[in-house]
Structure formats: C-alpha cells, structure tokens
Nucleic acid binder design. Structure first.
Length: 122
DNA sequence: ATTCTCACA
DNA sequence: TGTGAGGA
C-alpha cells in the first residue's frame, strides 16, 4: 500500500485533488490507525481513470456515475475466460472466438446467468 | 518528515 | 484548487 505522497507522483494528481475526489465519492480509500490514507494498485488505476475522464470535459458527478457503472459490470463476470461477453444485460458485441454456434450455446448454458441490476426506468 | 482537517488575505 | 495553520 502507498501513502498519499506516493499516490501523488504515481498519478500526477495533487494531494488536494485526491482528497477531494475521495470526499466526492469517486473513490473510497483505506485508512491507517492514524487516519492516514492508504492506496492499493487498484486505487492508483482508478485515480488514473478518474484523471482521464476528468480531462475530457466531464464533471465530477458524471465521472462518479461512470465509475459506479464500471464496477457493476466487473461484478457481473462470473467466468474470467468470458469477460468480453456480457450476456442479458448489455452488449454482446464482441463475440467470443468460438468456432461453431453449438459450442457457444454450450458455454452460455454452463455459466451462471445473473440478472442485470434493476434500473430507475426503462 | 508526512499527512490530516479546516478555512480563506 | 492552492496554501498555511495547528495537531497527530
């Protein structure tokens, strides 16, 4: 785990910005007994992702939404080998490199299908 | 030496 | 967002 100082040089963000993003709910950091923030490699990646999104004329509120949606998508991938396929929820754009339809159907039948989280409206 | 929270000439 | 105060 890194300190905020390391996080700064690793992300190019100021400590001020990092603390602000945390307060805004864009990222939740761990704390030590002494109340100091601790950053994992995952946190660094998320910080970098936030930096990217923010540099593309997006407000903190929008970035917060995007981040939460990405987290949901990750949770919905029970089988690592099929991460590219998102069934019954989002797109099925990128087809898995399966030779025939029968094999694909077999794979789909074997995986745990999870319902898409309920949304506000349709 | 570092980080933390809070507040603003 | 930066920066300095005052404490940990």
């Amino acid at each position: 785990m890194y300190s905020i100082g390391i996080a700064q040089q690793k992300t190019g963000l100021s400590a001020r910005q990092i603390r602000y993003y945390e307060k805004m709910g864009l990222i939740q950091l761990k704390r030590t007994s002494g109340n100091q923030r601790r950053f994992s490699d995952e946190d660094i990646k998320l910080l970098l992702r936030i930096k990217e999104l923010l540099s593309q004329n997006l407000d903190v509120k929008s970035v917060k939404e995007i981040i939460s949606n990405e987290k949901e998508t990750k949770t919905l991938s029970p089988i690592p080998e099929l991460e590219k396929i998102k069934v019954f929820g989002t797109n099925l754009t990128s087809l898995y490199p399966v030779s025939d339809r029968a094999e694909l159907v077999s794979l789909l039948n074997s995986m745990e299908i999870k319902e898409k989280p309920k949304e506000q409206d349709e």
